[in-house]
Design a protein around this nucleic acid. Structure first.
Length: 464
RNA sequence: GGCGUCGUACCCAAGUGGUUUAAGGGAGCGGUCUGCAAAACCGCGAUUCAUCGGUUCGAAUCCGAUCGACGCCUCCA
């Protein structure tokens, strides 16, 4: 019993036990707000959402911090190209990010700290690393982490420092590193940085990318916290460097469990900005895919499995969401009070498989098997309104995880509700042409009218 | 070259030594129901788990080889 998770650090599935009773402290790497995030980025955020929802479902309290990178090479570059400043460039992308997260039904983190608001914390941390001889200052005033000073370097990604020496890009012309594999903590100001720069004990400049996560995670979650997660591509060098910085500075353990999410692929190739093979959320919405469809698609493949994005795959996801919602509609038509726990065993079965490293495929199998069983009873009219109410209770529980089943009801304007009444009369008088005409009219508005023994059922159409 | 993940039906995908002559979803076909639809239900659908060899009383599951796909080693979710 209890949740088990695959720890990338030990490469084993481990029982999860929070450090502090039932409080879970979770850090995840957030977006760099230089542009709109693509749907591959959101795969990772939806994975974190699933993790958080399962933790909460199981009764844990979750304190989640997600950083926002609002200063880095790409941002500075774009500011140069567009002849603007960080404070003018980034807010629009941050807003878009929050909006997209909301559209995809992702629960917000407790904190979204911005890198530029934590420069002082980063400087303090760098000072500590210099003090503890893990970092050195170059002639120009940049500060680098000396990876040879940290014996466990490479332990997370299983990359040996020897092999790194053979492949690391030599960039001594950019900064004066002692060793090409050392990474920047503080970068001295250069003309192409424009007006980006902060004063520091060394020289005016800006933080390296990795230090923000060490500084902000420890500030909000303490030196040692439960879970740190992100995409697999962050494992090296980003997370490896975070460990080096954090452990180097405190001498303590840093993170209990590391979780890494696999990539979203397009044509069997990683979706990425640099390859240009990406879709933003907006792109896919404009193609007619519903937010629920996209959420379901990203949510329902195991997080350590690559997903290949195809429109066929999205269509299949839409059909599945409709199946779940159609079941909800049938229950709603029948349900009495929403109480009771006749179906608690189904929830137990669900949680049991979800506890195995978030085995969502097995979890869905539990849900769909139950739905088929319930539909059978509904077809036979052998489900009482009490039991329908109880089933609805469970369905709501499941939707605390999936968040695609329940929606705000459809509100029809006067003209449309009159049309539906007209259609009912037409059907009674067997004027089928008129009835079909009205059904067509609604279909164009993505509303399906279904004729049942209990009258017309109005549904929002998701599938294209 | 180093490190790692993966290959299960038309598509997606769970299962990682016996309770599986392999869950679940989608698509398809046939049927029930329906004015017609839609939804739902019933039935059909892998004697087989990339290939070959080995271990075992027993393998999709363990080991080895081969083939193929992908990721990281450089910014990246």
């Amino acid at each position: 019993m209890g949740l088990k998770l695959y720890n990338s650090f030990t490469r084993k599935v481990e029982s999860f036990q929070p450090i502090d009773n039932n409080k879970v402290r979770l850090y995840s790497c957030g977006p760099t707000i230089y542009d709109f995030a693509h749907i591959g980025n959101f795969r990772a955020f939806i994975f974190i959402d699933l993790l958080k929802r399962i933790l909460k479902f199981s009764g844990y309290e979750v304190n989640h911090v997600m950083n926002i990178t609002d200063v880095d090479d790409r941002i500075i570059k774009k500011c140069g190209v567009e002849n603007t400043s960080i404070s003018e460039l980034t807010p629009q992308y941050l807003d878009a990010f929050y909006e997209d997260m909301n559209i995809l039904g992702i629960e917000p983190a407790e904190y979204y700290p911005l890198a530029t608001e934590h420069i002082a914390d980063m400087i303090k941390l760098i000072e500590k690393l210099v003090e503890r001889k893990h970092a050195y200052i170059t002639n120009e005033g940049s500060v680098f982490f000396d990876i040879t000073s940290f014996v466990d370097y490479g332990k997370l990604s299983k990359i040996s420092t020897d092999s790194l020496k053979q492949t690391a890009r030599v960039s001594s012309d950019e900064y004066e590193k002692e060793n090409p594999t050392d990474f920047a903590l503080w970068k001295a100001w250069k003309p192409e940085d424009g007006d980006v720069g902060w004063n520091s004990p060394w020289v005016k400049g800006r933080p390296g990318w990795h230090i923000e996560c060490s500084a902000m995670s420890m500030k909000y979650l303490g030196e040692y916290f439960d879970i740190h997660c992100g995409g697999t591509d962050l494992m090296f060098p980003h997370h490896e460097n975070e460990i080096a910085q954090s452990v180097g500075a405190t001498g303590n353990e840093f993170v209990n469990i590391w979780l890494h999410c696999e990539h979203l692929l397009v044509n069997n190739t990683k979706m990425s900005k640099s390859l240009g093979n990406y879709f933003t959320l907006k792109d896919l919405l404009e193609k007619g895919f519903a937010p629920e469809t996209l959420r379901y698609f990203l949510l329902t493949t195991h997080y350590r499995q690559k997903i290949n994005l195809t429109f066929e795959h999205l269509d299949a996801a839409a059909s599945s969401v409709e199946r779940l919602r159609d079941f909800r509609c049938r229950l709603e038509l029948l349900a009495g009070e929403l109480k009771g726990k006749t179906y608690a065993y189904v929830e137990e079965n669900f949680l049991k498989v979800m506890n195995e490293d978030l085995n969502i495929s097995a979890g869905l199998a539990v849900i769909f098997n139950w739905i088929r069983d319930m539909n059978r009873h509904l077809d036979l009219n052998s489900l009482s309104s009490e039991l329908a109410g109880e089933a609805l209770v469970l369905l709501k529980r499941f939707d605390m995880i999936l968040n695609v089943i329940f929606e705000e009801g459809i509100v029809l304007n006067q003209k449309d509700s009159d049309l539906i009444k007209e259609r009912e009369v037409a059907r009674q008088n067997k004027r089928w042409t008129r009835a079909d005409e009205i059904r067509e009219y609604f279909l164009k508005k993505n509303i399906t009218l279904e004729d049942t023994a209990k009258g017309t059922v109005i549904k929002r159409k998701i599938k294209q």
